[in-house]
C-alpha cells in the first residue's frame, strides 16, 4: 500500500509534464518528441545548479527556461525550416541528448544525495505546521492506519502547485493569445485570415509546452535524488498515456475539464503502473513495455466499445423493423380478407 502513496506523489509531479504534452499534442496538434530530451534538460540543469550550490528554486526555474528555449527551437525548425513536425521533434531530441551530457559534465548521472532540494525545504516547513500527525490520526480513525506515509508535505504542496499550473493554463487558453493559439492547432488557414501569426504562435506553444515538461523534469530529479541522462526515454509516451487515459475517463467537454482530465490521467497512470509492478511476474525493466501496452489499450478499447454499442443498436433496429414489417403483412392480409 505504501507504493500507492508514492504513486500519488509522483503522479501529481508527472501531471505537469502531461499538461505540457497536452499543450503540444492536443492544443497545437503537434506530436512533439522534443519532450524526451527537454525533460532531461530540466533535470540536468536543476541538478547541476543545485550541486554547484545554487538555490533549488532558482535551479528549477532555470531548468524550466531551458525547456522553453528547446521547445522554441523545435518550433523554429518546423515553421522556418519547413521540417515535418515529427522529424523536428526527433532532431531536437537527439541534439538535446548531447547537450544534456554537456550540462551534466559528461557524466550520465548526477546524484543529489545530501543536497537541499525543493522538497527537503518544503517538507521542513511543512513539518513545523504539525499537520502530519493530525492527518495520520484522521486516517487511522477511519481505518486506513496501515498505509500512512512519513509526510504529507510533498503530496499536498505538489498537488497545489500542479493545480495552480492547470488553472494558469485554463486562464491562458482563454486570453486573446490563447484563443489564437488554439485556433492555430485547429484551423491554421482560418486564423491566418484573422491576422494571427501562426508561425510565431507555434513556436510560443512548443516553448510553453517544453517549459512545463522541463519543470516536471527538474522536480522529478529532486524528488528521486538524481538526474540521469536516460530518464527521459519514453517520456512522450507516458505523457500521451496520461492525456489519453484522462480524456477517456474524465471527458473533454471544456478546456478546464480537459486539463483536469489530463492531471487526473497522470495520477491514474502512476497508480496503474504501481499495481502492475506488484504482480510477481513483472520486473522494473518491463516498465516501458507496460506503458506501451497501456497506451495501446487506451487507444483501442474505446473504439471497440463504440463498435459494440453500434452493433447492439443495429440489431435492435433490425428487430423493431422486422416486427413492424410483419405487422404490415398482417394488416394487408386482414384488409384483403375483409374485402
Amino acid at each position: 500500500m505504501f507504493a500507492l502513496f508514492s504513486a500519488l506523489e509522483s503522479g501529481v509531479i508527472y501531471a505537469i509534464m502531461a499538461l505540457g504534452v497536452y499543450l503540444s499534442f492536443r492544443i497545437l496538434d503537434f506530436p512533439d518528441l522534443t519532450v524526451d530530451g527537454s525533460f532531461v534538460t530540466g533535470a540536468a540543469i536543476s541538478a547541476g545548479l543545485i550541486v554547484h550550490g545554487q538555490s533549488p528554486f532558482i535551479a528549477t526555474l532555470a531548468g524550466m527556461l531551458a525547456g522553453f528555449i528547446a521547445g522554441c527551437f523545435t518550433g523554429i525548425l518546423h515553421t522556418k525550416g519547413k521540417i515535418n513536425p515529427l522529424l523536428s521533434g526527433i532532431l531536437m531530441m537527439i541534439a538535446l541528448y548531447s547537450i544534456n551530457l554537456r550540462i551534466m559534465e559528461q557524466r550520465s548521472n548526477v546524484p543529489l544525495l545530501g543536497e537541499g532540494t525543493i522538497f527537503s525545504i518544503t517538507t521542513s516547513y511543512w513539518q513545523k505546521l504539525g499537520l502530519d500527525s493530525m492527518l495520520n490520526q484522521l486516517f487511522t480513525a477511519i481505518g486506513l492506519g496501515d498505509s500512512l506515509p512519513k509526510t504529507w508535505g510533498i503530496f499536498i504542496v505538489m498537488a497545489i502547485v500542479t493545480l495552480l499550473i492547470k488553472w494558469a493554463a485554463d486562464w491562458f487558453l482563454k486570453t486573446e493569445i490563447g484563443l489564437a493559439l488554439r485556433a492555430t492547432g485547429d484551423n491554421k488557414r482560418m486564423i491566418r485570415s484573422f491576422s494571427a501569426n501562426t508561425d510565431g504562435l507555434t513556436v510560443l506553444g512548443l516553448g510553453l509546452s517544453n517549459a512545463l515538461v522541463a519543470f516536471a523534469g527538474a522536480l522529478i530529479a529532486q524528488y528521486g535524488g538524481f538526474a540521469d541522462v536516460g530518464m527521459g526515454i519514453g517520456m512522450i509516451i507516458i505523457g500521451l498515456a496520461s492525456v489519453i487515459i484522462g480524456e477517456a475517463l474524465f471527458g473533454t467537454k471544456s478546456i478546464a475539464r480537459a486539463t483536469l482530465a489530463v492531471v487526473l490521467g497522470a495520477v491514474v497512470y502512476r497508480i496503474i503502473i504501481a499495481f502492475a509492478l506488484q504482480i510477481e511476474f513483472f520486473e522494473t525493466g518491463d516498465l516501458k513495455l507496460i506503458t506501451a501496452l497501456i497506451v495501446v489499450c487506451s487507444l483501442i478499447l474505446p473504439k471497440l466499445l463504440e463498435a459494440r454499442k453500434e452493433q447492439a443498436r443495429k440489431t435492435k433496429r433490425k428487430l423493431t423493423n422486422g416486427k413492424s414489417m410483419d405487422r404490415k403483412g398482417e394488416e394487408i392480409a386482414a384488409s384483403k380478407l375483409g374485402s
Partner: peptide, 15 residues
C-alpha cells in the same frame, strides 16, 4: 472573438 481581434494586437486580456 478571434475574428473581432483582427485589427488589434492580441494580448493576455480575456478573449
Amino acid at each position: 472573438a478571434m475574428a473581432y481581434a483582427r485589427n488589434k494586437r492580441r494580448t493576455l486580456r480575456r478573449g
